[in-house]
């Protein structure tokens, strides 16, 4: 496996609280890597470290992209998105008052902005902007079609039903042309048919060459689509492997059944 994203000893502390403790793993190119764990295990914190919303206290986050290796932990968040890491949010963050199409065009802001001569040229009408915009609309149309939202393109994002908003957020993330797509609980609140459609969509994204890292609570989805599962508990990584291997791991079972504390104290006593 050649990795797209590599975490080396990532630790995140908030004052005295260690939310993520020395986590190291790699997510492979062309793979779906899932991060699971009980509530409060540090999944979303780890996500925020990768996507630059937090700066990890210690450790490295390396993106092995098409343009070589980039250490993400030093970049401001908008640079991380430009480097090729896109994300969605656990609580959907669409631009509610703008149409689906506008949402997707904003995702292509940097490319369009370059074509306008950074705003000035376009006002005067001297630029390559119309062609760039046509291309951007074509890409937006492609992802709207892929997420089955083409007929809702001119509707405000805030007026779409919940499931469609989830899909639109994924489409928007894909419009930044990412090499790695990070999804924070994409199946939350979806009905079984919708999560089936989501799994299909993720496979298509994977086939188009974007690796996926996802946090998910829905074990059906995780076990069916992931190539590799990382299990976090109390901020530490307790297991990594294929879905089948992880499911059989006694530590994972213990963490999910809430027996982790007993086991830890037993281990402490033995030492």
């Amino acid at each position: 496996m050649s990795p797209i994203l590599e975490l080396r000893g990532v630790t995140m502390r908030f004052g005295g609280l260690t939310a993520v403790k020395d986590v190291s793993f790699a997510a492979g190119k062309g793979e779906i890597t899932a991060i699971i764990g009980p509530n409060g295990a540090g999944k979303t914190t780890l996500f925020n470290c990768i996507t630059g919303f937090y700066r990890p206290t210690e450790g490295e986050v390396l993106l092995h992209g098409a343009a070589g290796t980039t250490p993400l932990q030093r970049l401001p968040d908008h640079r991380i998105a430009q480097a090729g890491v896109a994300r969605t949010f656990q609580n959907i963050r669409l631009f509610a008052g703008m149409t689906a199409l506008e949402n997707l065009l904003i995702a292509q802001h940097n490319r369009l902005m370059a074509a306008t001569g950074f705003g000035i040229g376009a006002v005067l009408g001297l630029s390559r902007y119309p062609a760039a915009e046509r291309q951007a609309v074509a890409q937006a149309r492609h992802w709207l079609a892929a997420t089955d939202l083409l007929d809702r393109a001119d509707d405000p994002a805030g007026a779409l039903p919940y499931g469609q908003q989830r899909r639109l957020e994924i489409a928007r993330a894909m419009c930044t042309d990412p090499q790695l797509l990070c999804l924070d609980e994409p199946a939350a609140g979806l009905n079984p048919r919708e999560s089936e459609a989501l799994a299909d969509l993720l496979r298509r994204i994977l086939a188009a060459g974007t690796a996926i890292l996802l946090i998910e609570h829905d074990m059906h989805v995780v076990m069916r689509i992931s190539d590799r599962v990382v299990v976090l508990d109390h901020g530490s990584m307790i297991a990594i492997g294929t879905p089948a291997a992880v499911r059989a791991d006694p530590r994972v079972i213990a963490a999910y059944l809430g027996e982790a504390d007993d086991e830890e104290s037993a281990a402490g006593a033995a030492a």
């Binding site: 996507t51 630059g52 968040d77 908008h78 896109a86 703008m98 065009l105 904003i106 306008t116 376009a122």
Partner: peptide, 24 residues
């Protein structure tokens, strides 16, 4: 144009803008 759309996007949600690579 992109600049104006980015302004409006910023009004709607700054965090989402950051995640999309917009230099706030």
């Amino acid at each position: 144009q992109p600049l104006g759309r980015a302004w409006e996007a910023m009004r709607e949600d700054e965090i989402a803008c950051r995640a999309l690579g917009i230099n706030l």
